[in-house]
Design a protein around this nucleic acid. Structure first.
Lengths: 345, 345
DNA sequence: ATTTAGCACTCTTTGGTTTTGAGTGCTAAC
DNA sequence: GTTAGCACTCAAAACCAAAGAGTGCTAAAT
């Protein structure tokens, strides 16, 4: 869509003013913000044309204009200039991580909280995906004569644990054969390789040990499954109230929607293919509950591989110019932290 | 405070009716619920007296009565009969835990979610306190030539991990001396014994190894600190909206308050000394933000020792008779699950 | 001494009416 | 193409009246 320079200037100003004030923008109040040597009537004509193009709309006939989804989209794609993440903000972000959290789950949770505080939006973050990660180590720690805690650690530093209960005494020799099996069949394997087929052939090949070891081995497999799954975490829910106090009762619906991790997970993974930062505005979102919200998501990479996402959810009239860079900055930082921590030299 | 039998009956009925409907209870509507052979005027007189005693109040002169905090308190202490947790509810609770989550942190988080869903309130839960727990095992897993992931497991099944970075190569002999130190000075120790004093004497006694081992040992100590700390988790925030849509704007304030773990933690630990289930009503709570809320908290025990708490936060007009037993039931269940899992036979 | 019927009074809620004012679209002149 | 002017629209605010639920009080009844 081609717009005259003047139309662009007007559209941009309306979007920004509306983002700032939340009030529909009228031709006069727009002029007082913008130094243009034209009259309000001229602006009105332009606004009428922008409306006809579907970029602006009116809540009712005698009100000012607000941007439509397409209006925001045009703004984000063509008009907006990303603000720099300024020094003080950077410091706040970095301070938010405090001293070396190295558990990735905790780190990502914290990242969500930091982002939520910073942006005043709800924030989502996912733990690093286990795709491509392999099993680095497995331990069996006896906690009783017949029970042991199985601990699995992946190459991405994720640690999962679970108690396994056997019908037999877990004496030294049993543990030894357990470690043998683990060493032969699990350590170094990709998490995704540990599936039911693999387990079946493993069990078939085990012979006599199978009864004593089965519960332990099963636990290892369970943990591997768990570690592949990315977990979705949500923070800053209270911020939604802040925004949606206008929107009436949708706040509850939105919060309720965000509680369910599964749709969120889809949202994050579908987003941001290829692009640096993905912005979905209002009805561009695939879920009814997000029709009035915008979602800004970015991926973090560990060692150059995309491993997870961090994003924020806010009203469509969100401060794109400032927040998109913020999300990007935080995401990159998280990627760096994780890469550094788990770099294999 | 002594009340005539009739006053008790009236107060109880008002509390229950108000809890059910949320509307101030008038003398007539009360009579239609209650089969008493007196007139509304008599009831009015009684109500006036209950008001004078500070058990009832009126939102405005010409409205029905609602219970005051003291009114609720009297009801909970003297009038209420705990409902049984019925079969279907038990099943829902037990189903909520699915198949063997044995990571205590995850289990408690899940418990909070289950409780929130069940009660329609926000729920808080704490991870098992490390007080009295000892260090069961420590592992150092190399992730690079100079970095290792330190994993610590406690007797209560809590697992904490952290990456330690050294200036020296972590070769086999370094790891061996690390394990020696760990075996001698950490394994079997109470978490609370690992403090700065203990660390200082340890470092002093270490001699030449100190430079290579210090980062690793420090990490162990950090993890022990972390493991003593109970973590507070919050679930079901969206439910607060549900209730507080009446209350005006307090919902945001409340949510914002609940985000901060620290006051919550105090709340939980101060509560429920000795008692089975602790109920704090409105202004009985030590925080301004909770003045209009009630908190129902109960402890769970592992092996007979109090280890943490689970509770719900709702409006003062919460269904005490049903929810108090529910909280109790869930708490006991969690205690049992954790006890079973980590029982040392 | 309680209980009750009756009544005047209070105060929120509800709904309708009016006023206000920001903002528009159109027309005609520049 | 731009602008001044003007009639028109419509949400929001202000105002008012009526309705209704509920009370407290008094005086009679039990």
């Amino acid at each position: 869509m081609e717009l005259s320079e003047r139309k662009q200037k007007i559209l941009g100003a309306i979007v920004e003013l509306y983002i700032k004030t939340g009030e529909p923008v009228g031709s006069k109040s727009l002029l007082s913000e913008l130094d243009m040597s034209v009259s309000s009537a001229t602006v009105r004509n332009e606004m009428a044309e922008l409306s006809a193009l579907g970029l602006l709309e009116q809540p009712h006939t005698s009100a000012g204009r607000i941007p439509t989804n397409d209006g925001y989209r045009y703004y984000v794609d063509n008009l907006m200039v990303n603000r720099q993440v300024d020094e003080s903000l950077r410091r706040r972000i970095e301070a938010g991580f405090g001293s070396g959290i190295s558990d990735p789950e905790k780190l990502l949770e914290r990242a969500g909280e930091v982002l939520a505080d910073l942006t005043g939006c709800a924030a989502v973050s996912t733990t690093p995906s286990g795709e491509g990660a392999y099993i680095r180590r497995v331990e069996a720690v006896p906690v009783g004569t017949k029970t042991a805690m199985i601990v699995l650690m992946t190459s991405t530093g994720v640690i999962k644990s679970k108690v396994a209960r056997s019908d037999f005494d877990l004496n030294a020799s049993v543990l030894e054969s357990f470690y043998n099996v683990v060493k032969a069949s699990f350590v170094g394997k990709l998490l995704s390789e540990v599936d039911t087929a693999m387990m079946q052939t493993l069990v078939a090949s085990m012979g006599g040990d199978v009864f004593t070891l089965l519960p332990l081995i099963t636990a290892v497999s369970d943990l591997a499954q768990e570690a592949v799954h990315t977990e979705v975490m949500l923070g800053g829910q209270s911020n939604i109230l802040h925004h949606n106090s206008y929107y009436g009762n949708t706040a509850y619906e939105l919060l309720e929607f965000l509680r369910r991790g599964e749709p969120l997970s889809k949202l994050l993974s579908s987003a941001t293919e290829g692009k640096d930062v993905d912005v979905k505005i209002g009805s561009e979102n695939p879920y009814r509950q997000l029709m009035k919200s915008s979602v800004i998501v970015s991926n973090y990479n560990i060692d150059g591989n995309r491993r997870g996402s961090i994003g924020i959810i806010g009203p469509t009239r969100i401060d794109y110019a400032n927040l998109i860079p913020s999300v990007k900055y935080l995401t990159d930082l998280v990627g760096e932290l994780l890469t550094q921590t788990f770099k294999e030299e």
